[in-house]
Write a protein that binds this DNA or RNA. Structure first.
Length: 544
RNA sequence: GCCCCGGUAGUAUAGCCCGGUCAAGUAUGCGGGCCUUUCGAGCCCGUGACCCGGGUUCAAAUCCCGGCCGGGGCACCA
């Protein structure tokens, strides 16, 4: 459904971002590189959130920026899944698992889907767990050991911590190269258990930040990697118990993949320092690094672990995951615009919903056709008609007459027609006495009888309504209409199981919309079609 | 506690590197008006900010110092 709309979507967004992508400030030292290589490196322990959209979009935006400036540029997607224990790449939801089979572990697939939705298409994709199997990190570790830049440390963790805190080297630091190589091979063969041996990078035991002091490059993890198990089986996965730490894998990969610029969140600042030791030892050029602030969104957390704890489906429309926002009716163009707007400042940014909605509305307004619908309907009888049939033709979109009109017919019996109004508008009618029914006629309030509102026909003429400054309200014919239910995400707190729902009636034409398509209900707001349920059309409220 | 980074209107952002053109631009929000057969969109007007205190200078949002506030890091997580 979304896919069928995608082509035109693409065009529109390109038009929009083209300007802004080019207004991004140049990256440091961009002139010394023939090709600008950027990367987005998520951990597949959950789907992407709005927070991840910042590095994903910004990195990709720079790729586009340089390409448009006639410079070669490349965007790499790299899955950083080197901790099979603490950050297991898995969402344990059988319903989701059914949709994706075999070797495509769902998170990897979902992240690619999220990026595709944002129209981000990586030039290259790598998965670090594959590279572990290829031996990439082990090879570099051996080289570092050989040149004395790394050593195997067999101190118990608490013992080492004491050395570190007192800025003293531990005895392992002075082991010779041969011993270290031998110990490392023993690690790989499984002769040590988790915690018994690690490979450390020799840094500076007096470094002011204790975490920089001889940090761990590889360690033994006593857990099978879910992806390797799925792809190659347990026996195979069993062989890989030595895993690189984040900093080691990143330094190795950034270099081997030719990454020239790293744009990441400021929480990684100290990691740049840690990684610099590897670049120096191996005489590699360290990528230029830009750290931007963290992202917050009004009314939600962007912490993956907290989001997971909520126990909701990853694409629940209340969640600030990209999948959730997509379900909710936020368009990828809006996410792009917000991210480009926020930019690469080092300070944190808090996105307000009003802002997000306003940007989203800009794109939605173009696309969404207009429909008549009433919430909490009240029947109104209008008398005084002299025709038997009253027909109106309402354009689908006020700014796009080329989209055509649909015809709505009302039959009068004994000069009377029946329609529905929203309860709120009935109040308006009582108060103002006279009102205009959108595209239809002007009526006057006469009273009530049998729970029915009685009104009298005044005229068809719009000019009369204008002259008398009548309020214009939407209506639905009593004789032909469909039932609708609207799920209000905006009114549903995360702690509540069921969505707040509103029910009403709409003109029959609304049911022609396909699943996933947006619409605007006059004077109500933008909605998205979810499909039919219990004989009613289920809609999701997006925003006003 | 230690170490980094930051602080422009309600929110986001431009300007800060290379002091004057900034009595600070833009978007959104809010108030008002116009337009429109929607309380949507569009158009117009208005509202509203340089964290505080010192210093340097003829001149500081921009440079320096101190304070305050906010964020991040201090893992065999990423």
């Amino acid at each position: 459904m979304v896919r069928s709309r995608w082509p035109e979507l693409l065009e529109e967004r390109k038009e929009e971002t083209r300007r802004t992508v080019e207004t991004l400030p140049p990256l440091p030292n961009d002139e010394i590189y023939d090709m600008i290589v950027l990367r987005f490196a998520p951990n597949p322990d959950f789907v992407l959130t709005l927070g991840n959209a910042r590095p994903a979009i910004l990195n990709y935006a720079y790729k586009l920026r340089y390409e448009r400036l006639g410079k070669k540029s490349k965007f790499i997607l790299r899955f950083e899944d080197t901790d099979p224990k603490v950050k297991r790449p898995f969402i344990d939801d059988p319903q989701i698992r059914e949709r994706y089979s075999d070797s495509d572990l769902i998170n990897y697939r979902f992240i690619i889907d999220d990026l595709e939705w944002l129209n981000i298409r990586p030039d290259e994709t790598y998965i670090q767990s594959d590279r572990v199997v290829e031996g990439v990190y082990y090879d570099v570790a051996r080289r570092l050991i050989e040149i004395g830049g790394a050593y195997v440390c067999t101190c118990p963790e608490d013992v080492w911590r004491r050395y570190r805190d007192s800025k003293q080297p531990c005895p392992c630091r002075s082991r010779n190269v041969e011993e270290n190589l031998e110990l490392f091979e023993k690690m790989l063969k499984g002769e040590f258990r988790e915690g018994e041996a690690v490979v450390r990078i020799k840094t500076d035991m007096a470094h002011p930040d204790p975490s920089v002091r001889d940090w761990v490059a590889l360690r033994i993890v006593n857990a099978l990697h879910p992806r390797l198990v799925l792809k190659y089986g347990e026996n195979f996965a069993e062989r890989y118990k030595v895993w690189p730490t984040y900093n080691f894998a990143v330094a190795v990969d950034d270099h081997m993949m030719g990454v020239t610029h790293v744009l990441r969140a400021q929480e990684h600042r100290i990691n740049t320092v840690k990684q610099s030791y590897i670049f120096k030892y191996l005489d590699w050029r360290q990528p230029e690094t830009i750290h931007f602030g963290r992202l917050h969104i009004e009314g939600a957390t962007l912490s993956k672990s907290k989001l997971r704890e909520l126990g909701l489906r990853y694409d629940d429309p209340r969640l600030p995951t990209l999948a959730g926002l997509r379900e909710r009716g936020i368009l990828p163009e809006a996410i792009w615009e917000i991210m480009l707007n926020v930019g690469i400042k080092p300070s944190d940014a808090r996105i307000s919903l009003a802002n997000l909605y306003s940007i989203n509305r800009k794109y939605l307004d173009e696309r969404a056709n207009r429909y008549l619908a009433v919430i909490d309907p009240v029947m109104v009888e209008i008398s005084g008609l002299s025709r038997d049939v009253i027909a109106v033709e309402i354009p689908y979109h006020p700014s796009h007459p080329e989209r055509g009109k649909r015809r709505i017919e009302l039959r009068a019996v004994n000069g009377k027609i029946l329609i529905y109004l929203s309860r709120g508008d009935v109040e308006l009618l009582r108060k103002r006495r006279k009102i205009r029914l959108l595209e239809l006629m002007n009526v006057e309030y006469m009273g009530e009888s049998d729970g029915k509102i009685i009104a009298r026909f005044l005229s068809f003429d719009l000019e009369d309504a204008r002259r008398d400054k009548l309020d214009i309200v939407q209506w639905v014919p009593a004789e032909s209409n469909i039932e609708i239910t609207v799920e209000r995400v905006d009114k549903t707190p995360l702690t509540v199981r069921d969505f707040v729902k509103e029910s009403g009636l709409a003109e029959p034409d609304l049911s022609k919309l396909r699943k996933g398509e947006p619409a605007q209900l006059f004077r109500y707001g933008f909605v998205k079609v979810l499909g039919e349920r219990d004989g009613k059309l289920l809609l999701r409220f997006i925003h006003e």
